[in-house]
Design a protein around this nucleic acid. Structure first.
Lengths: 314, 314
DNA sequence: TTAATTGCTTGATCCAGTCAAATAAATATT
DNA sequence: AATATTTATTTGACTGGATCAAGCAATTAA
């Protein structure tokens, strides 16, 4: 059962403002097309036709959100001018497949170039770094508003890369601050642990896994050597937005498998009792609570827990 | 002289795709208004009138990008229905100031609520974290495309907050990786330094400054106590996109002033000769190079430099 | 004083876009 | 197999959103 929280006023306001802004923006674009022999809608149709052969009228109408009758007339106009060729569909005599003729492509070309010039004119004044920022932001909007197809692969695991240490520190610091009120010393501890992990990394005895989804880090875990026989799992974390995909469990499983393969006898970890969702994962994976102690850290009174997994009986 | 590089093909494509996408998006919005007694344009006019009193027709036409004649008719319609009141301007008898009547506000209200419902419907399906991402991306697009007024305050300095340590580590790690090819051990070093800084922080002898612009961290510097008489400046960094605003210089100046006020005699720092822009700042601030040594770090052969500033003669 | 510009209005017009009805093919139902 | 329903497309009829150009009065510049 998921409680759906209402969007905040600030979010609604920003969303609506953006729509007003972009309505105007597109008005400007449309205006600049005004002198051409085609309307904005006709140009959109041409664009679709130029980029995809064999479309049917219905498909076209639905991707552009056009009235079927209106589109029909536009297509008729194109055909009468020799820009468009219709081929009756083999398996449905009602439909035909649409394709621009050579003349059609030639007509589209200057239109397309003009649109390109417009885009250049919009981007060129920006410093290069901001161009990239802009494009990224646009992609984000599109992905989130367009009923973005859920990524086929829900997430991938990959090794640590430059930038990850800082990012994970940042997210964990913020997250535990927001959720549990831990202060900046927690983030600092994470930074130190990860810094040391990287600088003293022993590839034969240690490992890390980063879960990535849609190009963004959504989880991670680290396995360090504590002694000849004991490996330690550290800093398991999963982005709240991606909980429920089994990422946490997967990360822990990877750790266990790796530790076992390297001949460790015990996998240990230290956590705090407030971290309930992590605890469930550890329990499910077979860890057993071996020690608890009160401590004051990160600005809070906490109960630290040590969990262990025997790697040999399994 | 600034060389203006052309936008990349990828950027142009993304930009144009977004325009097509949002054209469709706005088409959907307009459609949903179809049954109301006002057209989308009329609704936009109403919105502007509802949110700003005393507008003139020309101002309105230009903010919405409307034809003056068309707007004139719309206003006439509003006035004849008693939604709008025009007050002749005192200092220009050609203009009049526009203001919604009470009836006008009452008419606008359900319209506004409907638009609000639409916004809710668009945002509600997203998980909260993505809502915020979306809104941020929209704001970014708007800022970059709308001839965004440069933020009045180009940047602000603020103390360290939770999340900063990780973020700064992330950015510095990535940046020096991209610009100079340094490997992940540099990021790890930054993490350790910052982690230690926070955990052993002595507010009477140490300090940090975060430069923020538009809500985003764009620079930082840390000052640590090395001994009774020597303070050390560490990890100066400025986002490339915001170079030229004097942020680096400002951060260094803050360090110097703080070190002086705390009675240190010397301010020292360690850097590498490849970091040219930082070096210029140190030189300009009066630092002198006191030592150089070759070393191999971060996967590169580097020349380390120690710079010092005498805090007493100034 | 005259000329040019600006703010707004009005007449004329157009064509983008909507709606409903019609046709023919495909699919579902009996 | 016959009938009903749905789907893809077309066509006729119409509306009203939007543009353009001309015009008027007030303002500003020459």
């Amino acid at each position: 059962m998921q409680h759906v929280q209402a969007p905040s006023e600030h979010q609604l306001a920003a969303f609506r403002q953006f729509n007003r802004f972009y309505t105007r923006q597109i008005g400007v674009l449309a205006e600049s097309m005004y002198r051409s022999e085609f309307s904005l809608t006709e140009a959109r149709v041409l664009f679709e036709l130029a980029h995809k052969n064999g479309l049917t009228a219905t498909a076209l109408a639905s991707t552009l959100g056009l009235d079927a009758g209106y589109l029909s007339r536009i297509l008729k106009k194109f055909e009468s001018r020799g820009l468009l060729q219709r081929t009756p569909s083999a398996d449905d005599a009602r439909q035909s497949h649409l394709k621009l003729t050579v003349a059609g492509r030639n007509t589209f070309e200057p239109l397309d170039r003009a649109a390109r010039e417009l885009a250049i004119a919009a981007l060129a004044p920006l410093p290069p770094s901001e161009r990239e920022t802009l494009v990224e932001a646009m992609t984000t909007v599109e992905r989130l508003l367009g009923n973005a197809p859920e990524p086929r692969v829900p997430y991938i695991l990959r090794p640590l890369r430059v930038g990850d240490v800082g990012w994970i520190t940042h997210r964990q610091g913020l997250l535990y601050h927001q959720e549990y009120g831990w202060d900046e010393t927690y983030e600092a501890l994470v930074a130190q642990i990860l810094g040391e992990f990287v600088r003293n990394f022993d590839p034969n005895a240690e490992a890390s896994w980063i879960a990535e989804r849609d190009g963004k880090v959504v989880g991670s875990v680290f396995l360090v050597r504590q002694s000849e026989e004991i490996a330690k799992l550290r800093l398991l974390y999963v982005e709240p937005a991606t909980r429920g995909l089994g990422i946490g469990r997967r990360l822990v499983d990877e750790c266990i498998a790796f530790a076992r393969s390297k001949g460790y006898r015990t996998l240990t970890l230290w956590t705090n009792d407030v971290l309930a969702s992590a605890r469930r994962i550890y329990q499910a994976a077979g860890f057993r609570l071996v020690k608890e102690e009160q401590h004051r850290s990160f600005g809070k009174d906490l109960v630290g827990q040590t969990w262990e997994l025997n790697l040999q009986h399994g």
